[in-house]
Simulated assay, not measured.
Amino acid sequence: MSALELRQNVLDELEFEPSVNAAHIGVTAEGGVVTLSGYVESYLQKLSAISAARRVKGVKAIADEIDVRAPADKKTADDEIAKRALDMLAWDTVVPPGITVLVRDGWVTLSGNVDWHFQKRAAEDDIKKLSGISGLSNNIQIAPRIKSENVKAKIEDALKRHAATQAKAIRVTVRDNDNVLLEGKVDNWQERRAIERAAWSAPGVQSVEDRMTIG
């Protein structure tokens, strides 16, 4: 597939995605790397545009240069965003108490500690839904757990159980017993995300470094 064909396919997918106003989004493509530029009116639209580009066959990597520019009459004050964010987190039974929220110029930063990665991701998903935000930094830390001697084996077993992954093509390295490195080649973004989730599901994992490639 040529770069021009890939670019057009991404543009078509953005136009097809109902949650994205693609009128001000630019697309370039080279060697399977797609660059998204321009601007949208909400952070959720930005994430939806990136997800739409990932669905296109032939996209190996995405460079995100999209800005969030809310109309002047729809801008939300930082204190109002902070209050909404705290309410959202409090209503979510998956997210434990103690998460702090800092908002500056519409950019939300989350801090605090949780026991599991899915709790950290749940907090992030809650904030993504808020209107008026321009970006999000998730600095929530996963609290250290009792060290497991079989982290590598647990992850490899999880990959074997997952029908959407090719476990034999993935190399799993565990450093300091809680930092996971993933290497190898996958067929698509969905498989890549499934492997990342499997790595995060192992007890005690503090970080996952994804060096997998799509090909």
Rank of each mutant, 00 (worst) to 15 (best):
T35I: 07
A70L: 15
A70S: 13
D64A: 01
V27P: 13
V40Q: 02
A53S: 15
A70T: 15
I66C: 07
V68K: 00
G58C: 07
V68Y: 02
R69K: 14
S42N: 02
R69H: 14
V27R: 11
L47W: 00
A49F: 09
G38I: 11
V27Q: 13
G58K: 08
A53F: 09
V59K: 05
K46F: 02
A29T: 09
D67C: 03
D67L: 15
L36F: 10
A53H: 11
E41Q: 13
S37W: 01
A61H: 12
K57T: 12
G31E: 13
G58H: 10
V68L: 12
D67N: 08
A52Q: 08
R55C: 00
R54C: 10
S37K: 03
S48A: 07
A72C: 01
S42K: 02
K46L: 12
S48L: 01
Y39W: 15
R69W: 15
T35P: 10
E41F: 09
V27Y: 09
A52R: 12
S48E: 01
L47P: 00
S37F: 01
S37N: 06
K60C: 03
R69L: 15
I50V: 15
S37G: 09
A61F: 05
A52C: 11
L47H: 02
A61Q: 14
V68W: 05
V33N: 12
A63Y: 03
G32W: 07
V33G: 01
A29L: 04
Q45M: 12
I62Y: 07
G32I: 06
R54L: 00
V56N: 13
P71M: 11
E41R: 13
A53K: 03
L44G: 01
K57W: 06
S51W: 00
A70R: 08
V27L: 10
V56M: 10
K60M: 09
V34M: 05
R54A: 09
S48V: 00
V34K: 04
Y43K: 00
V34G: 04
Y39M: 07
A72F: 00
K60G: 03
R54S: 08
E41W: 08
Y43M: 02
G32H: 05
A53E: 10
A49I: 06
D67T: 01
E30S: 11
S48T: 00
V59W: 07
V68F: 08
Y39C: 02
I62W: 05
L36Q: 08
I50K: 13
L36D: 11
R55F: 01
S42F: 01
T28A: 08
K57A: 13
D64E: 11
G31Q: 12
P71Y: 09
D67A: 06
T28P: 02
E30W: 05
G31V: 04
P71F: 12
E30M: 03
E65M: 06
S37E: 04
I66N: 04
